[in-house]
């Protein structure tokens, strides 16, 4: 927050996103642009990208202390000190499609849990939305589960914890360094995103294969704000910020949904590979065990896992297009 405030100067927020500049232009910037344009000079959000102001690992503390005013990130990447850290980003095989996420938050009660848990640690949670599935893009070909053994992959902490049982070696480095890390040999690829991001951020240029099996159907990420900064905002600007975030969600839903289909069908940089569904069943079963483990970790964990279970039961009974078969 700027210390020098002039009369009628716009309210300024510094916002940092978990995404690098190329991805951030699609996942975070549209909402910011909308808010800045609609605020008509009353408010201005300055957007910064991954690790630009503070390293992503320090992002949460920076948000609490007001060093950064607002954040767009998943709970896992920003090392959230809440139990929700396990569920943000990619909770293994908990969702199938991008729209599952807002439904889970707005119809199945995740929003209340998120709001409550973040309030406890001094951060205001505003809104969550879905993004792309978590596929693999690698320099080495994957056609069976055995091929995962020994692969060094850039992935989310919780996803990495889950994948390590298949021999994956999860590597954690700053987001913007991942592409070069493939070239310096620190990584064999990523289990981080769908194919749209692979092409957008340049990962498709350094890896050769894309595995169509995903370990989660949609990323879960949120907008957060420093409580004091939120309280200082006049009501009409609060409404405006929320509307801008919703507009960003809508844009993103379409960008990913269209991108995933088009680039799988027409992209020429990554060769598609698939592990047969029969074999992949092992991973799906392992995910259910993993859910049980996570549910054991605490009350909130159990509550969230139960919601995922209930929802998956509903879509399982509903059948396609909610499920794949």
């Amino acid at each position: 927050a700027p210390a020098i405030v002039r009369a009628q100067a716009p309210i300024k927020w510094r916002m940092q996103t978990y995404a690098g500049a190329a991805l951030g232009a699609e996942v975070t910037k549209p909402a910011v642009d909308y808010i800045n344009a609609a605020a008509n000079g009353e408010m201005e959000i300055e957007l910064f990208y991954a690790d630009q102001i503070v390293p992503t690992g320090e992002l949460f503390q920076a948000l609490q202390r007001g060093t950064i005013d607002a954040v767009h990130s998943d709970d896992d990447s920003m090392a959230s000190p809440t139990p929700l850290q396990r569920f943000g980003g990619y909770f293994p095989l908990a969702t199938k499609h991008i729209l599952d996420v807002p439904v889970l938050f707005n119809q199945y009660g995740l929003a209340d849990i998120w709001r409550e848990e973040y309030e406890k640690v001094g951060v205001t949670w505003l809104s969550a939305a879905g993004q792309d599935p978590c596929n693999f893009n690698t320099t080495k070909e994957i056609t069976s589960l055995e091929d995962l053994d020994g692969l060094k992959l850039y992935t989310f902490p919780t996803a990495g914890r889950f994948l390590s049982q298949f021999g994956v070696v999860p590597v954690s480095i700053p987001y913007e360094d991942a592409e070069v890390a493939v070239q310096t040999g620190e990584l064999d690829g990523m289990a981080w995103s769908g194919i749209t991001e692979d092409y957008t951020v340049g990962w498709a240029d350094v890896t050769d294969y894309f595995l169509t099996n995903n370990i989660s159907g949609a990323w879960i990420g949120s907008h957060f704000v420093n409580p004091q900064r939120w309280a200082d905002l006049p009501e009409h600007l609060k409404q405006l910020v929320m509307a801008g975030i919703e507009a960003g969600h809508t844009y993103r839903d379409q960008w990913y949904w269209g991108g995933e289909a088009r680039l799988r069908a027409q992209g020429d940089k990554l060769k598609l590979r698939t592990i047969p569904q029969k074999e992949w069943k092992t991973v799906e079963d392992a995910a259910l065990t993993f859910w049980d483990e996570i549910a054991e970790e605490g009350e909130v964990h159990a509550k969230v896992v139960k919601i995922f279970r209930d929802y998956n039961e509903v879509i399982g009974n509903a059948g396609p297009p909610y499920t794949f078969e």
Binding site: A1, P2, P55, R65, G66, T67, I173, P174, T184
Partner: peptide, 23 residues
């Protein structure tokens, strides 16, 4: 002087950034 709230934390957060810069 210029940052406002939380600006004093910035020099140290560079130390964490440095730690993660593996090259």
């Amino acid at each position: 002087l210029l940052w406002g709230t939380g600006g004093a934390d910035m020099p140290f957060s560079a130390a964490m950034k440095l730690m993660k810069w593996y090259p």
